[in-house]
Simulated scan of single mutants.
Amino acid sequence: MLFPFAEKAFIDDKKLVGYCLSETHITDKHKARVFKAALGITADNYLILKEAISTAVLIEDATFSGANAQGELYVVDFILTYKARQASIRSAWIIHFGESFPRLVSCYVNE
């Protein structure tokens, strides 16, 4: 199924730069190391990842993965090709109760 309200998807730059691509994040710096090793993507060129996620959420199938106290959870998987490298990416999303747009929660290389 296509993602509900995908055209309104919100991707906070801070989520990408300060979390997914941060090589100094206390608990998740490994995500950044894998992005760099697999695709050559770092916090310096995070817009490559942001654009890929923004496109994928519009055209790839979304999978409902349950709900928590804040809202409904979904994942969107896609293949990202950058500079002759390719990797499977998983993006995790939430649609908060009372809102009508998805917010990016996390993303990582899914291999």
Rank of each mutant, 00 (worst) to 15 (best):
A84M: 14
F78N: 01
G66K: 09
G98Y: 07
E51P: 04
A43E: 06
S54C: 10
A37G: 13
A38R: 03
G66F: 11
Q70L: 15
L47K: 13
H96D: 11
F35N: 00
A43M: 05
K50C: 10
H25S: 09
K31Y: 11
F101G: 00
E111S: 14
T55L: 02
T24V: 14
K83D: 11
K14P: 00
L58K: 05
K31A: 07
F78M: 01
K15P: 04
S100K: 11
I41T: 00
D12W: 05
D28V: 05
Y74Q: 09
K31Q: 12
S106I: 10
R103C: 09
T55V: 03
P4T: 06
K29H: 15
V34N: 02
L80V: 03
A87Q: 12
S22P: 06
D61G: 08
M1H: 12
S100I: 06
V34M: 09
N45I: 10
C20M: 07
A43N: 01
Y82F: 15
A69L: 08
T24Q: 06
A37E: 15
K83H: 14
D28M: 08
I95C: 04
S106W: 07
Y46I: 01
F35R: 03
P102N: 03
V17H: 00
N45M: 11
V57H: 00
G98I: 04
H25R: 04
L58I: 05
R103M: 11
K8M: 04
L21C: 12
L73M: 14
S91V: 12
F101I: 05
I89S: 01
I95G: 01
A67P: 08
C20T: 09
T24F: 07
A87G: 11
F10S: 07
D28C: 11
E111H: 13
I59M: 07
V76Q: 01
T27C: 10
N68E: 10
C107K: 00
Y82N: 09
G71S: 10
F3Y: 08
K29R: 15
N110L: 08
R103I: 10
I95K: 00
E99D: 13
V75A: 02
W93I: 06
S88T: 15
R85N: 14
S54G: 15
F10E: 06
I11C: 00
G18P: 11
I48M: 03
L49Q: 00
V57N: 02
F35A: 02
A62H: 07
W93N: 06
F5R: 03
T55R: 03
H25C: 07
S22A: 12
V17F: 02
V109R: 03
S106K: 13
I59G: 03
I41G: 00
A84E: 13
C20I: 13
A92C: 14
K15D: 09
I41L: 05
H30A: 06
S106H: 07
E23T: 14
I48P: 00
E72M: 13
Q86V: 15
A32F: 08
E23H: 11
S65D: 10
I26R: 15
F64Q: 06
V76D: 00
V57W: 03
K29D: 11
L39N: 00
A38F: 06
S106C: 09
Y46Q: 05
G98V: 12
R90K: 14
A52G: 13
K14E: 05
I94W: 03
S54I: 01
L21M: 14
